[in-house]
Structures are given as structure tokens and as C-alpha cells.
Write a protein that binds this DNA or RNA. Structure first.
Lengths: 162, 162
DNA sequence: GTTATTATGGATACTAACAATCCACAATTC
DNA sequence: GAATTGTGGATTGTTAGTATCCATAATAAC
């Protein structure tokens, strides 16, 4: 199980747009070149991001893309869900198997269960919630901030060396 | 992105074995039947679990599978890593793109970076760690316990009704 | 030892998702 | 009107996951 390359491209593209915030639109050409991916493929991804309201686009000369919201309001989870879809990490394909009856089995004449959710799924959903919470807490701005922090650290260490 | 059906089968199979702990080996036939999956396919999965030391197997008449460790020592993460492989959830395919140079870009004559890790990857690795920690904290025994809890709750509510 | 049973591993096939490209078209600036 | 730029449809190749079949090896029971 692994996130697709598309997600990778999308995240990096958004960061690139964020770095140019407020100045100008960025066309697919420089964007694709900067990420090292073909224009045709990246344009598909950008379209998705546009349809879901993460970026705006302008056609024609001087056109291109820009963020539709401030970087602080674009979470990693947002981006992932747009590209990968809002699907659950785990789906139990066994729901009508004997297995789940044994989980809850009282006497055979037991009434229909209220707890009809797979116990494995309960755990897996918990895991996904952990991850989602983390991804919701990190935004494009987070990366920008870290990049700035790294840069200033670099500079000071270089000054120390000299 | 989604966990494979194989992971689903593996988890349910292990729970099944755990429920029969210490009594007898369980053959592929009843196991597959109980999960609602073909014997041939499940046997591949069981082989993997054996190769990685999660179950033991005996061939021949009266053969079958049993857990190789107590249920408390088989974590969800163990099972997932055996089936899905120990791969990282996120791989940055852009490492040599302009993008990462702009993250850290001081003056162009800057020395080779120590912080050569993608900042996007840093976030994504953090997310995976959150999930892994959760999955490491839940075991086959966890499910057994919850199943018991649900059962007793069912019983008591049935008693109350009567 | 022979037979029936049971797991193992190799080979193979099918399918769906992902990755990638190309092209005709629409919108916009100059 | 011409050049530029994004959009969406169609198409193709590749890979991972799903699934099956069969020959083989190991073991218990007789």
C-alpha cells in the first residue's frame, strides 16, 4: 500500500504555487518542468485540484494556476483526499462470513446484532483516524514554515563556520 | 490507497486460529470456508504468514495451522507488514527536482545540504508513524478481548429484557 | 509400506488501478 | 485574428492484486 505519484506531484505543485502567492499565475509549463514531470500528466492532476476548489485556473495568455485558499487552509488530508479519493483504508470483505457470527455468538437464537461492525475494521478505522488527524494538522503553510526554518539554520551555521 | 484483501483474510484467519488456541490445528479447508475465500488463494497467504513466523504448519493427515506466538504478541502492524511488505507509505519521486533546491536555497554557492530530506516526506513519515504506533498497540488478543466484551454485554442486555 | 490427507510452490491468467501521452477544443491576451 | 494556455476525451502501457490449477512433499492411519 502506497500513496500514488499523483499525490506526490499534487503536494509539490501546491507548495510551488504557495511560494509564488499573490505575485503571478504559474503556467503548467514551468510547473511541470520544476517538478520533473510531463505537462500533459500534471495538467490532469491540476484539473482535479481545480474541480475540488484547491486552485484556480486562468486560460489564455498570461494564464496559469494559483491557490484558491491561503496555504494555511490547505491541509495534507485535503490534497490526499482529492487525489486518492475519500475511500477508507480498510474494507472488510467478510461481513457475511461465519467469522463475524462467532465474534458475537451467544446462543444461536440470539437476536439481530446491534454491534454488526467487524472488530478488525474497528481497529483499522482507529488507525486511519490517527493518521487523518495528523494529516489534518499539517498544511502547505507548515512546509513553508519549515523550509524557512531550515534556511535560517543553514545561514547561521554557515556564519559560524566563517 | 487501500489495504489489500489479502491483509483482510490474514487478519481474520489469525483470529480464527487464536480462537482455537491449544486445542487443535486448523486445516486450510475449514479456514477458507469460514472466511468465504478459496482454499488455493488463502493457502498462499498462510504460507507467507508461516515464512514470517506468525503461524506454524503441519502437513499430512491431521495437519493444519496454529499460531506460532501467543495472540498478545501478534500485532496488527506485524500482520500488515508481512502481507503488504515493509514499504513506506510515501515515496518522494522528485528528489532531484528544482523544487527541493528552492526549499533549502541559500545563495547558489551553498555547500551540500545536510537536510537533504524532502519536507513533504517528513510530514508524510510523521503520519505513518502515528498510524504504525496505533497498529503496534493493537493485537490479535485485543480483538479477542473486545469480542468477549461485546458478548457479555449482549447477554446482560438480553437478561434485562427478559 | 500403502493410502489418504494436507500443506507447498510454481506457473498461469484475469482484472483494475495507475501512469503517461496525444489531440481537438475553448478561453484569453495582445 | 494570432498566439498562448488550460480542459477534457480517448488511448495505451505497465504493474500489483486477485485468483486458480497442478505437481510435489510430508505425515498419520491402517
Amino acid at each position: 500500500m502506497q500513496y500514488s505519484k499523483s499525490t506526490d506531484y499534487a503536494l509539490h505543485a501546491l507548495i510551488h504555487l504557495a511560494q509564488a502567492e499573490g505575485r503571478e499565475n504559474i503556467g503548467i509549463k514551468p510547473l511541470a518542468h520544476s517538478l520533473g514531470v510531463s505537462e500533459s500528466y500534471l495538467s490532469k492532476i491540476m484539473s482535479k485540484l481545480r474541480q475540488d476548489g484547491l486552485v484556480r485556473s486562468v486560460t489564455g495568455v498570461k494564464g496559469g494556476y494559483e491557490l484558491a485558499r491561503p496555504p494555511r487552509d490547505i491541509t495534507f488530508l485535503d490534497v490526499i483526499q482529492v487525489i486518492e479519493g475519500r475511500q477508507e483504508l480498510y474494507v472488510c470483505s467478510n461481513l457475511d462470513s461465519k467469522q463475524h457470527r462467532t465474534y458475537f455468538a451467544g446462543p444461536d437464537e440470539a437476536p439481530p446484532q446491534r454491534h454488526d461492525q467487524c472488530l478488525v475494521k474497528r481497529v483499522m478505522d482507529g488507525a486511519q483516524q490517527q493518521m487523518d488527524r495528523y494529516l489534518r494538522g499539517h498544511t502547505i503553510q507548515t512546509v513553508l514554515d519549515e523550509a524557512a526554518a531550515v534556511r535560517s539554520e543553514e545561514c547561521s551555521s554557515r556564519r559560524t563556520q566563517a
